[in-house]
Amino acid sequence: MLDIRGLAASIVGKPILKGIDLTVPEGEVHAIMGPNGSGKSTLGYVLSGREDYEVTAGSVTFNGIDLLGMEPEQRAAAGVFLAFQAPIELPGVNNANFLRTALNALRRSRGQDELDAVQFLKLARAESKRLAMPEDMLKRNVNVGFSGGEKKRNEVLQMAILRPKLAILDETDSGLDIDALRIVADGVNALRGPDFSALVITHHQRLLDHLVPNRVHVLAHGRIVRSGGPELAKELEKSGYAGLIAEAA
């Protein structure tokens, strides 16, 4: 399980997270909602180890180990996966090679045998078919020339292949049409199980219709100002954040 205690973080000296307390038990999906600039993406980056954020207070443990003391690749090996809000383009890097390198790096760190090109392609083709992705996406350079929706689906493909224990989805639903949204939600739902938990950062109730969370948390000004069940998302859709933020301030 993920256990965040009093987490504070800043970027170039500017505090963004100001004391987050959050527990995500194994097997649960939690949604993080909140207005722009509230620190949602920062939380995702801090959990996955991006270096330009400085953790100034608090702790994060994941299945009992101190996540903050680990390099990004060690966190990935431990099972953490961040689906980027704006996936990065890698010109000159073939998508299939990228995925295989990542999967084999994880397998190595877990003491498993690496997959050869044939074994890997079989797996990657099956997963991309399930996500209704055109097969040529595996042959193209990572995210280069991908549409917004294709980039998001490519993130979900990576998640499906890397099979994390904790997935952090940073606005993976933004910019997706209804069909793509359902595919993304199905991709996450397929991983749901006792060993999988997820933090779903989103602005919209829409995704949560397909990907029903166990808990919903509202983040504002770097703090969680309210937590509740799935009904909280519906309430926010009607009333907005204004009341909650005023309440917290």
Partner: peptide
Amino acid sequence: AEQIFYLRSRGVPEHEARSILVRA
């Protein structure tokens, strides 16, 4: 730096991530 982080966040060790980007 963002490309390096993207690769590392997928489990690719830093030295290998840099190597991939140099070859790219």
